[in-house]
Each structure stands twice: as C-alpha cells, then as structure tokens.
C-alpha cells in the first residue's frame, strides 16, 4: 500500500480514531471520483460491523451503478433483476425471518422500473430495509433522465431540460412510501458532508434496529450526487445538490415510529 502520512509520532494504534471497516473488502470501488455511493456503502458496512450483523445480513444489489455492490461489502449477496430487489428481499425475509435483509437501489431501479415492487413490499410491511440512492439520473447507462430528475434538469434523454408537460414530474416516491400503513420508518438523508454522514449513519442504525422489531418496512433515501452524469466536478455537484435537489427533496424524517427500539 502506498501511503502519504501526516505527523508520524501520532500514528499509533492507541490514537486511531477512524479506519475503513474490514466489513468493506479491499476491492477498488468502481464508482467515479466523488460519487456518494462509496460513502453510503461504507456507512452500511460500518453499521453491519458495529451491530454484529455480518453473519445475519443478506444484501440485495440492484441493476445500475451499484450492481457490483456485492464486491465491496463482505456479506452474503443476491443480485436482483432491475427493480425487483424488494420482491427478492421479500422472499428472503419470509423464508429466513431471523436475518437482516436489505436492498440497495438507485432511483431508476426503485422509482421507475421497480415502482410496483417498491410500493407493494412497503404496503405489505415487509420487514426489510430499503436504502434508496436518489441522484436524479441514470448513472450507469450514461446520464439519462430518471423518474427523480428535476424539472428543467438536463440529461442525455432530456437534452433541453426535463419538460414536465411531456416528460412528467419528478416522483417523490419516498413521500408515497411514508403514507403507506406498512412502512415503519421513512427518512431522507445525504452523505455529502461529515455532519450529514453522521446523521445518515444514525438513521440507518435506527432503521436496522427497527427492522428487528418486525413492525414494517424501513426506507432510508439518500439524496446523492452524480458528478459524471451531471457533468460537474464532485465539489460542484455537492453544491448543486444542496441548491437544487434539497429544495425538491428536503432532508429529514418523513415517518418516525412512536415506539422506540429497546436494545
């Protein structure tokens, strides 16, 4: 490993405050520089490690940029067909009710082709956790319009900007999920600053604990960036996200259970 270190005297095991969790594998992430996927992966891996869930966790990866998520987190994985992760996870959880079952899906996967699976899994109150990465674009296929693309936002299939009259409106699917009796905890977060990473980690930890109560579906939306798809630098994309995505997709809890988990 080629490293560049700060002050050597401080670098001692007893002074360690932050290190990549060993639940993350050593494989290099396939994501573009600055993409929020990596940070979201790491938070999930950290929680799996900290909550002692490595032997309990079964992840379902989507079709999209994060299709190879199974290469990065050291747990059992199933790779689902495009949009079908909630159906796949439904069966896993029904057949192995003691396990921690989660899906990780992008906006095209969860809110376009997989809308029915998302809504119905949540409506049945499946005891799974859905992590939803919303960056308003199809990243893997090269920046096409997504169901969550903002009005006026340019993409390769809305080159003059999304015209809501002909292309429809951005779908706030998380808001819809929050209205369903089957959903238990629904929140919207981001991972672009250290403070937001902490909040998101707290939210996912809560969702993991709630899932153990078997009271319904938990959904954590992470509003994220796509520097390549948005044609910006990573730093610009995070600023653009704050200014444009957050007003349309405001961060915060959409549904909080009254009953708190007892640990």
């Amino acid at each position: 490993m080629v490293e560049f270190s700060g002050i050597k005297e401080i670098i001692k095991p007893e002074n360690l405050v932050y290190k990549k969790t060993n639940i993350m594998t050593e494989n290099t992430l396939s994501y573009c520089p600055g993409c929020g996927h990596g940070t979201a992966h790491r938070i999930i891996a950290e929680i799996i490690g900290e909550e002692g869930l490595q032997s309990e966790a079964i992840g379902v990866s989507p079709v999209g940029c994060s299709v190879f998520m199974y290469n990065y987190i050291d747990i059992d994985w199933q790779e689902a067909a495009h949009g079908r992760a909630p159906a796949v996870a439904t069966a896993i959880k029904r057949l192995l009710p003691g396990k921690f079952v989660f899906t990780y899906q992008g906006d095209g996967d969860l809110a376009a082709i997989g809308t029915a699976e998302t809504i119905h899994a949540c409506n049945r109150g499946e005891n799974i956790l859905i992590i939803f990465i919303n960056n308003g674009i199809y990243g893997m296929t090269g920046g096409q319009m997504a169901p969550t693309t903002l009005p006026g936002m340019k993409s390769s299939t809305s080159p003059y900007g999304r015209d809501v009259k002909t292309m429809g409106f951005p779908l706030k699917i998380t808001d819809i999920v929050a209205t369903l009796p089957g959903s238990y905890y629904v929140t919207r977060q981001s991972v672009h600053t250290a403070a937001n990473v902490k909040k998101t980690k707290k939210a996912i930890r809560k969702a993991v604990q709630y899932q153990k109560l078997n009271k319904g579906t938990c959904l954590v939306e992470i509003v994220s960036n796509c520097p390549s798809g948005w044609k910006m630098t990573p730093v610009q994309s995070n600023k653009w996200m704050e200014e444009n995505m957050f007003p349309y997709y405001p961060l915060g809890d959409l549904k909080t259970p009254e009953e708190l988990p007892t640990k």
Partner: peptide, 23 residues
C-alpha cells in the same frame, strides 16, 4: 410460506430470492 404477489414479475423474483437461500 404462501404469498400472493402483486404481479407475476414480483412472484418469480420472490422465487429467485427464496431459491438463492437454498429453499
């Protein structure tokens, strides 16, 4: 487990999930 899915598509993907658990 007997489950009425929301579609044939969901049903076969539930089969995928269950089969991948060795069931």
């Amino acid at each position: 487990v007997v489950l009425q899915a929301e579609s044939e598509i969901a049903a076969i993907n539930m089969v995928y999930g269950g089969a991948a658990c060795g069931k």
